[in-house]
Amino acid sequence: MTAQELQVTRPAAEPESVAVAPDAILPPSNRIINLGAGVGVVLWLLVLAAHRLIPQVGASFKVPADYLTPVALVVLGIFGVTFGIAYRLPTQRPRVLAIYRVLIVLGAVLIPWEVASRLAWIKPPFFPSPSKVIGVYIEDSSKLLLSIAYSMRLLVVGYLIGCIAGVSFGLALGWSRRVSNWSMFWIRLIGPIPATAWIPLAIVIFPNSFTAGVFLIAFASWFPVMMLTWSGVAGVPKALLEAAQTLGADEKRLLRQVVIPAALPSVFVGLFMSLGTAFAILIVAEMLGVKAGLGWYITWAQGWSEYHKVYAAMLVLGALFITVVSGIFKIRDRLLGWQKGILRW
């Protein structure tokens, strides 16, 4: 068939190209920044007003140290500084807004708390005033810091041992049929026993409370890490294994360059999950009689009915958890950079 026989239609002219603006992500507008700063400042002024203007019902002779006023002033200062940054450096606006959101919620919680405390609707020692909780960080800081150090030592040692054991067991189970055939029954039996149920045995076996605590935390983190490593290995696409084999990869290369990278996303889910368990067990383990530690601190403070210390230590635990988790996320993002754009937890 020649061109003459074909019915050919051609457009008269090239359609004019339409200029499209590049996909710029616009920083949050002035209005949003102003609104955020405005609401925040008003809320924190209210916090300050409630604290300074409402007389304390049932006040004792001893006037407690005032820690809320300096905190409120610092927060107001932060609003001032970040507001300036938002206008000087518009690219920093998303960060500034993130700070605003946290401070606004904190202010909104503090107002009713402070009012209720001033009017003695809630009473110490179980429900102390905000100022009293803040004061713990200043008055009891050395004991608190020592406790953080002890807790972190116990947690890190136990969690690392548990994770290393979990990943190794998981790989062995997923890779070797013989290993899984022989150990399957026992793992199903022993794995789900709560770590706390091991306490009586741990106390007897281990020479001191630190090693017993390490064992309990390691045991608690071992099981989820192992199960998810295993399921990650089991889920390695057969197509990729075949591809590696037909390229001539031997067992060692298959394991190190195909199985482990493919299982890694699942392994990280296990690491994340077991961290929560590890924290829970940490508190229990520190009740076995250690010299210092956050769990110990909480129990000890409760014993003296110093509930403000209990709450202060709880907040520290939360902050520690966030720190450790974001550390794990950093490692994950480095190792799993190839997953860019794939949906993640």
Binding site: A239, L240, A243, A244, Q257, W338, Q339
Partner: peptide, 8 residues
Amino acid sequence: DVRLFPWL
């Protein structure tokens, strides 16, 4: 389906 290793 090519089967490149997605992590390499």
